[in-house]
Amino acid sequence: MTANSETQPRARRIAVMFATLLLFWVMLMGRVTADVLIVGVMVSLAIALLFPSGLSFFTEFRATPKAFAAGIRYYGLFFKELVKSNLKLAAIVLSPSLPIKPGIVKVRTRLKSRMGRLMLANSISLTPGTLTVEMEGEWLYVHWVSVGSTDVEGATAEIVAGFERYLEVIYG
């Protein structure tokens, strides 16, 4: 656990967890009626009380207008990168010579929160030719299908920087 999550009051974490669970439950049922709500509230509350330190979608989310704007921009960038990575990988896979240059590089992140780091690792795994293999504190070990630069600074600039700019604002 990082310092960031410790400073958040327990009640707030439980409330966030409860709200997220209830939202997913209502979405899953697809209707808002009394019986659905009663069951949802009971189960969500029980889970939120039992696992207050669990990660959920909005854990450590900074509810400011700036964070929302950054969130939208982040998803825009994310889907653009996802499509780009798929086209690139399809091109590599379909070319007869299989032009890969794989390797595991080390990058560093400035993000402090657990959720921010989770989102960063996930984003890296889904974007051009990179896959997070191991995480140790601020260091991420990333498998790269076509290695661009092998030193820490160069790899960080190429892999991490784009997402980190937005995630820093959203989660810190």
């Binding site: 889904l126 896959l131 299908v145």
Partner: peptide, 12 residues
């Protein structure tokens, strides 16, 4: 590792 890469992105 490269197989996992191909699998993850394309299936997502």
């Amino acid at each position: 590792y490269n197989r996992i890469q191909a699998g993850t992105k394309a299936t997502t």
